[in-house]
Write a protein that binds this DNA or RNA. Sequence first.
DNA 1: ACAGCGGTAGCAAGCGCTTTCTATGCGGTA
DNA 2: TACCGCATAGAAAGCGCTTGCTACCGCTGT
Lengths: 354, 354
Amino acid sequence: MTVTLADVAARARVSPATVSRVLNGNYPVATSTRDRVLRAVDELDYVLNGPASSLAAATSDLVGILVNDIADPFFGIMAGAAQSQIGGPGDGSGRAGGEKLAVVCNTGGSPERELTYLTLLQRQRAAAVVLTGGALEDPSHQAAMAVKLAKLADAGTRIVFCGRPPLPDSDAVTASLAFDNRGGARRLTEHLLELGHRHIGYVAGPLERTTTRHRLEGHREAMKAAGLHGDEESLTVHGPYDRRSGYDATRELLAREGEVTAVVAANDTVALGACAAVRDHGLRIPEDVSVAGFDDLPFSVDAMPALTTVRLPLAEAGARAGRLAVGKEKAPAGGIATIDAELMARGSTAAPRG
Amino acid sequence: MTVTLADVAARARVSPATVSRVLNGNYPVATSTRDRVLRAVDELDYVLNGPASSLAAATSDLVGILVNDIADPFFGIMAGAAQSQIGGPGDGSGRAGGEKLAVVCNTGGSPERELTYLTLLQRQRAAAVVLTGGALEDPSHQAAMAVKLAKLADAGTRIVFCGRPPLPDSDAVTASLAFDNRGGARRLTEHLLELGHRHIGYVAGPLERTTTRHRLEGHREAMKAAGLHGDEESLTVHGPYDRRSGYDATRELLAREGEVTAVVAANDTVALGACAAVRDHGLRIPEDVSVAGFDDLPFSVDAMPALTTVRLPLAEAGARAGRLAVGKEKAPAGGIATIDAELMARGSTAAPRG
DNA sequence: ACAGCGGTAGCAAGCGCTTTCTATGCGGTA
DNA sequence: TACCGCATAGAAAGCGCTTGCTACCGCTGT
């Protein structure tokens, strides 16, 4: 039926062992023999049996990339960059050894799915796993993750975090690349404060994610430093990281009182919803209300007016995570690197009226 | 070291065969025995060895989803929807049998990568493969794909196309879900013609993709039906499916002569670039120039003015492809289904001046 | 009371590869 | 000329699981 190593061996008139060695290139084989084998492989159109190979070698070339939402470019960009480094096809090396299969797994933000994907990858004896995006704060889930990751690490799977805070007291994770969400958020709010805003609405992400908390903390840090605090609670609304959440929350913020002069959104997508709400409320951006986002996704510069936001180097971070995952790059000191976030002041923010 | 089936068997005081049967649930096992086994699995924290299992059973639970650009929500949305149906974790069934590992592979639009990913999936003995997005028109690549897909199908891998035209004379593909790009494009251009436009610039996608050709054909069909043809060639510019291409091409179109009153873009992302170019040229949308996109990605409604475009039911199509891939749904008659595209007339198009 | 049978469990033979260990052939050296 | 060592190839033992077949047990039917 399907062609096996033995078939190739027979055709090349060598032993299966030799074919295996030619394919893996990890053992000296005479050039003439190698050529013969390669020709046979070609003629028979032989494709290695991955499971058999993985079983015998006790390793696999699978690399999993976990993302919260594959439809969100935030994750897509990171995942794409990571995948491009991990290789699979066309990583430029041309070496058979570099032929890793980078695959992305969509958890949909669900803790169970996250865990189950990890189990599935463990089952496949994955070579590495990259976890992207913020983590859930739920202690029991964190504990479960720590255990699972420890087991994976134990089995030789390399683990890399990308855009995710490091796991405390764990040496399972090879490297953690964490975004400076707090700093970015602080600078963003400072920018608004400098423009003269005092009543700033905050449309935050889901309560239980680290990303949400960090950005919120940065915002509040800035507010506090400006001597503004007390009404933050009432000016903060939580919701998922989507457009609708931005729309609904902003309508609510606007309806509550007329006092809000600026709205900071959890991310750019939410900001787009916020913009729509501001307009539907009959107000102009930025003359009546300033709006700001976070992430600087590609479409943000095309919003009208262009969205003030905080740029996260998603592609760079993803690529680095990919390289770390396949060992092309060595881990930063302490296994942790913080990635800077840069304020992008654009047209959607301006001084408040009056 | 790691826990094996045999360890579980020993602990449950049964044979390995019995453990395997409990795990696979495909053979009668007495309840008491099953419980004992399940408890042992739990206590030992046993995780099946995927490669070994796949080798012995000659099947695997991997399902590959190939996309051209994972950072593009067009693909992200389809892939996410497909993945959600394929299951992996939390497909709702709860059945162990449904635990497929849906993974997405990013070809970056490169033909070699596409082929190599297919080989990699073949090597893993994937249960199914979903190919999304338009195909390349290059005959030699198409032939290579046909051969590769035939081989995969031969090995029992189910193959589904999503948003991709069917492969002629091939029974390798289980089902093809093709978007009605031609019809959508035609209706879009008709809309512009009805508004009174006569000089319509077209920023097309890469020359070698079926999607590009089909959309272009629809456009020209409409033009021809309106008795307008001849200058289409000169009003068409090709480029990649990205913002920059839309920007550059539109600048060029605008600079060429002042006559263009509308710009149709290859997709929404390109349209965003076109919008920016129109504005940078000192013109207003839609008063001076109308702009239209394609796909109706989530951000399109938030452009200012909201983008007129053609809606493709990406999520529905992706979900259906996912279901077809795992056999939850049966293939449409003839293995081919055409998915309708709906015109979304919004603020970015209006009658030309004068 | 005995053959026969449905219901369970175990045995053992692989699945297709990797890898250790062993065998062979050859050139070079004393 | 005899011996050693290197370079290369082969033999064979698994890797951990699945599954066809056999074995056993307690019943039922006659």
